[in-house]
Write a protein that binds this DNA or RNA. Structure first.
Lengths: 241, 241
DNA sequence: GCCGATTGGGCTAGTCTCAGACCATTGAGG
DNA sequence: CCTCAATGGTCTGAGACTAGCCCAATCGGC
């Protein structure tokens, strides 16, 4: 934690892997966060390759890998494309242990801390900013959609709600950081059973977050998000123990 | 800001450039943030290449470019290495305009928002955590060092103080995000003249941040950081207008 | 039933990047 | 003064990645 800690931070790896691996990771993020919903279609390869800044060859390798792994169904011809077949697994303690073993306990703590910081920071920033009618409406709509969700759609719409907060700040960097943070723990969150008590509790907290943001109270917004995320983190820790 | 916003966020470029460009950027970050201070030496090429996860050839190209650009002085032989010759430029409005034109106003707002969110989030998290004696001491030492700094060292130690907050959370991801956020605006901050009034004001705010963290008051810590950063952001905006 | 637009599938030549080995230079210490 | 360890400088062959082009399949609409 001395001077050398900063060296570790700044001189960390430039690349997290080769282009293929990073692409697989990114597509998996889009799928698991529900950015492309089950049954939905990825953009055409040519367009997607440009967006991701990689060649079509590499993109196709990644798509092929995800297709082989059962995440995607690729169809040729007009109105074809890569369709998402992935469905979040049923909550299960075994899956959770598997997921936490894949990353290690230190990495998990890192990810949870990161998520807590960026999401509460985002809410704080958003509450401090001027929100026009359209943005207020969007936030409320996302909340309504989440509250109306069935169990199948809950995780996806929960993610959509949380990410909307970061997106509404107008900072692409912040939105990307929140999406990244969320995807790092999504496998674990998916493993937690969705009990009605927890959902009810979450709904109250979501409401408190939106209220604080719309009221323009940054501290209340930050606190509300922190409490909410601490709740799920505690649930997770308890579930793993 | 609708559904497609999330597609933009998640399906953003996988690579910010080729390995050479990203390496130059990273080394520049280490230099400009003062992680390797003026006169200091970068780690040996072989070690640095491993840390950055790139080949020595690519690393050497990057070092060569920075050497040509006057940031580094490379010396051969035992006790040789790449020494930092860069000195932060004198504060100057022309430099500032140049820097802001290099990134565009939208990108600047993005970076400032990102910095605000991650740094206040980090302070909030740190204040909420248990701090042992060593960590408290480190935080206070950084503050003392900053207060004792001359004008030459002020920016560097200011950065060191702020980054320490993120590092102390124990989250490498969060520390990296804060370092990234800071490096995005460092050129601009360097362009702001350091007036004694501003330094005095900053010292009071730094003290408030540390007090809130040590008192274990997340909301006060988040607020203190937000006020502090908003202050410098406002200074920046006024300076550019 | 054919046409054309859209989309995935595949190939090639060229560039970037890497791992590893070997060479050249420097300066502290014997 | 010589030696030797640490460090930058250079080369090479192999693999990864890219841009661009053309082929193949599919389906709506004429």
């Amino acid at each position: 934690m001395d001077e050398s800690a900063r060296l570790m931070t700044v001189l960390r790896p430039v690349r997290a892997g080769n282009a293929f691996e990073e692409t697989v990771e990114r597509l998996l993020q889009a799928i698991k966060l529900g950015v492309v919903p089950p049954g939905g279609k990825l953009p055409p390869e040519r367009e997607l390759a440009v967006r991701l800044g990689i060649s079509r060859v590499t993109l196709r390798e990644a798509i092929r890998a995800l297709s082989d792994a059962g995440y995607l169904d690729v169809r040729r011809g007009r109105y074809g494309g890569a369709f998402v077949t992935y469905r979040p697994p049923e909550p299960d303690a075994g899956t959770a242990r598997q997921a936490v073993n894949a990353m290690g306990p230190g990495e998990l703590a890192d990810a949870l801390t990161f998520r807590l910081a960026v999401e509460s920071g985002a809410a704080q920033v958003l509450a401090a900013s001027e929100l026009d009618a359209a943005k207020r409406e969007l936030l409320l709509r996302r909340l309504d959609e989440l509250n109306a969700a069935g169990l199948d759609d809950y995780r996806r719409l929960d993610t959509a709600f949380h990410l909307s907060i970061a997106e509404l700040t107008g900072s692409g960097l912040l939105a990307a950081a929140c999406a990244d943070a969320r995807s790092r723990v999504s496998d674990l969150l998916n493993a937690i059973p969705m009990l009605q008590v927890n959902l009810d509790h979450a709904a109250v907290q979501h409401r408190a977050i939106v209220d604080a943001i719309l009221a323009g109270d940054p501290e209340a917004a930050g606190r509300a998000v922190a409490e909410h995320l601490e709740g799920t983190a505690a649930l997770l820790r308890g579930f793993l123990a």
